[in-house]
Structures are given as structure tokens and as C-alpha cells.
């Protein structure tokens, strides 16, 4: 790879050290979550909390998690919801983003203003009307209901519009000359080139819906549909506010998120290489 020679690829040692320091600071909560999950609850209640790794080591929290929490069910439910939301959001975002970025059509600015307006509306204000809509469409207490009401394409539309805008128009013109239909231009040119945006949008949508505690709590009542964040809240409570056990459960809950992240990461890179070849 010749790539390493370009100066955007220049390694700046001071910058790198600063970045690492910043990240160490950012990691404190994660560090606490992980190591405290191996301690008895009262040793993390103490202030300042006892954070020496492996001191008072115990597996009692994990034992409690596997005995008393439906981890696998909650995880599965969260995955069903979040994966669907991620895919749907990315699809809607890229189609609309493509239209906004590369097609001239009447009313474009009005529609785009609507996209921005949904982005700006405080979600907390909309909880009640949103629930009314869901209730009247009989969407409450079902996966498809949560999925439909969680898809929030506005940020994705904006992001993919910004991304696709910067793709060279010549590519699309060339495809057209080659006899590509409108659909073909989207599927053969726009979509492959915007994979980094698709990856980014899916990841955000995935994580956002994975952590969407309040809405999932409001929408889902049936215990069989309980999701990870809702389960976490119940679990801590029925364990006498046992924070260490909660931390153990959320440590377990973080592992799949990390795996998903790493899997999606490859997606970004792939999109980038396509772009580079074409450029």
C-alpha cells in the first residue's frame, strides 16, 4: 500500500498522546462499570468507590445475572428492534438523501425544511402525541410498533444528503450516458458509494434504539417483549438496588454492542476504497 506516504497519513506523536489521554479520561465510566461488576455492591457504594481492580473479587453479581435476569431474551428482543430500526432508517435516509442531493425537483427546499424541522422538535414534547398515534394504530405492545415509531430518519436523511452531495456529479452523468435507468443510478452508483454513510447511519440508529429506554418502557408492557435497557432497570430494582449486579448485567450487555461496532467498522472502510478507486 502506497497509502502510508500521503501526508494526511502523517503520524503526529503529540496529537496522538493527547488523543490517548483524552480517551483514558473518557474510559473512566467503562472502567468503573467493568471492574466494579466484580465487586460486592457495598464496596462500590463507598465514597470514593473502591476501584482497585480485582480487590474483593467476586462472581456473585454475574451469578445473580444468570440466575435472575432473562439476559438472552432481553438481548434478543433488543437486537430484533435495533437491527430493524437500523436497516429501515438507513434505507429511508439514503433514498431521500439521494433525491435531495442529486435531483432537481420542485419543492425541494420545502421538503428539506421539513426534514430539519423534525430534527429540531424536542422529542420529550412529542411523547404524548406519539403515543396517541401508536395507540390509535394499535401499535403498542408489539415489536413492529416499537420499530415503526423508533425509526427517526431525519438525521440520516440530512447526513446522507450531505454525504452524497460531495460525490462527483460526473459519475452519475457517466452512468446515465452508459444507459443506466434512474433506479440503476441509485443502486449501482449512489448506494455503493454512500456505504460509509449507510454504515454510520445504521450504527447510530442501532445504538440509539438500543438505548431508547423511556420509549420502549412506554410502548412495551408484556414481559416477553422486554428489552435490555428496560430489563436492566427492573433487574437493579428487584435486586434491592444492587448497583454492582446492574453493572454486571450492563457489562454483559455491552459486549454485543462492541462486536456490532467492529463488524460495521469494516463497512466504512469498504465504502472508502470504492470511492478511492473511482476518484
Amino acid at each position: 500500500m502506497k497509502n502510508n506516504k500521503y501526508s494526511r497519513n502523517y503520524v503526529s506523536i503529540p496529537s496522538t498522546i493527547l488523543v490517548i489521554l483524552l480517551l483514558v479520561w473518557v474510559m473512566v465510566p467503562f472502567y468503573i462499570m467493568f471492574f466494579a461488576s466484580f465487586k460486592p455492591n457495598f464496596s462500590i457504594l463507598r465514597l470514593p468507590p473502591d476501584l482497585v481492580p480485582l480487590k474483593d473479587f467476586t462472581l456473585v453479581n454475574y451469578k445473580a445475572v444468570f440466575e435472575r435476569a432473562d439476559v438472552f431474551l432481553w438481548m434478543k428482543n433488543s437486537f430484533i428492534i435495533s437491527v430493524s430500526v437500523a436497516l429501515a432508517t438507513a434505507f429511508i435516509a439514503v433514498t431521500a438523501g439521494y433525491a435531495f442531493a442529486k435531483i432537481k425537483f420542485p419543492g425541494k427546499n420545502v421538503f428539506f425544511a421539513l426534514v430539519m424541522a423534525t430534527l429540531m422538535m424536542p422529542k420529550q414534547m412529542l411523547l404524548i402525541p406519539n403515543y396517541l398515534v401508536a395507540y390509535n394504530l394499535h401499535l403498542q405492545d408489539s415489536f413492529h410498533g416499537v420499530i415503526l415509531t423508533t425509526i427517526a430518519p431525519a438525521f440520516g436523511v440530512f447526513l446522507s444528503r450531505q454525504y452524497i452531495t460531495s460525490l462527483p456529479s460526473t459519475l452519475f452523468d457517466a452512468a446515465e450516458i452508459d444507459g443506466c435507468s434512474e433506479l440503476g443510478k441509485f443502486f449501482r452508483v449512489a448506494l455503493p458509494l454512500s456505504l460509509p454513510a449507510v454504515g454510520t447511519i445504521s450504527i447510530f440508529a442501532f445504538f440509539t434504539s438500543f438505548n431508547d429506554y423511556l420509549w420502549q418502557l412506554i410502548m412495551l408492557s408484556n414481559k416477553k417483549l422486554m428489552t435490555m435497557p428496560v430489563g436492566l432497570s427492573f433487574f437493579g430494582q428487584t435486586m434491592h438496588n444492587n448497583r454492582a449486579a446492574q453493572l454486571a448485567l450492563s457489562s454483559i450487555g455491552t459486549i454485543p454492542l462492541i462486536l456490532i461496532f467492529i463488524a460495521c467498522q469494516k463497512f466504512f472502510i469498504k465504502g472508502a476504497t470504492v470511492g478511492a478507486v473511482k476518484g
Binding site: 429506554y213 418502557l217 432497570s233 430494582q237
Partner: peptide
């Protein structure tokens, strides 16, 4: 039965009242 957590359970009740 459906159970509510103390954390935001009251919000769920409020929305149920409101609607």
C-alpha cells in the same frame, strides 16, 4: 400483571392518564 420500574414507571402512568 404488568410490572413497572420505579425509574420512569411514573412517566408511563402519566402518559396512560393523559391519553
Amino acid at each position: 400483571y404488568d410490572v413497572l420500574p420505579y425509574d420512569s414507571g411514573p412517566e408511563k402512568v402519566t402518559i396512560a392518564y393523559a391519553t
